[in-house]
Computed example of a mutant assay.
Amino acid sequence: MREILVIGIGAGDPDQLTAEAVAAIRRVDVFFLVDKGPVKQDLTALRQEILRRHTDGAYRLVEIPDPERDRTAAAYPAAVEDWRRRRADRFARHLVEDLPDGGCGAFLVWGDPALYDSTLAILDDLRERGVVEFDHQVIPGISSIATLTARHRIALNRIGRPVQITTGRRLVDDGFPAGVDDLVVMLDAQCAFTRFTADDRVDIYWGAYLGTPDEILVAGPVHEVAEQIVTARAEARRRKGWIMDTYLLRRCALPG
Rank of each mutant, 00 (worst) to 15 (best):
S144H: 02
D101P: 15
L123S: 01
A23Q: 15
D182C: 15
V109H: 04
S144T: 14
P77D: 08
R161S: 08
R250W: 04
K240T: 10
Q164S: 13
V138W: 09
Y205L: 07
D89Y: 04
M186R: 09
R151N: 08
E227L: 00
R52K: 13
A58C: 13
A208E: 02
G111S: 12
I204K: 00
G12F: 03
R169K: 14
P177D: 12
T166V: 10
Q48T: 14
E133R: 13
W110S: 06
G220E: 02
P38F: 05
A88Q: 04
D101V: 10
I243C: 05
T194V: 14
R71W: 13
Q48H: 07
A155C: 13
D214I: 11
L115G: 10
L187D: 02
D89V: 12
R52P: 08
G102W: 02
G211V: 06
E3R: 11
L187G: 04
E49G: 15
A234W: 06
P77H: 08
G256C: 08
V180T: 15
V230H: 00
R90V: 01
V230D: 00
R251E: 03
P100V: 10
H136S: 11
D29N: 15
T18N: 08
G141W: 05
D135T: 15
A114M: 10
D125S: 12
Y76R: 12
R71E: 05
W242F: 15
V30A: 10
A121M: 14
R250M: 00
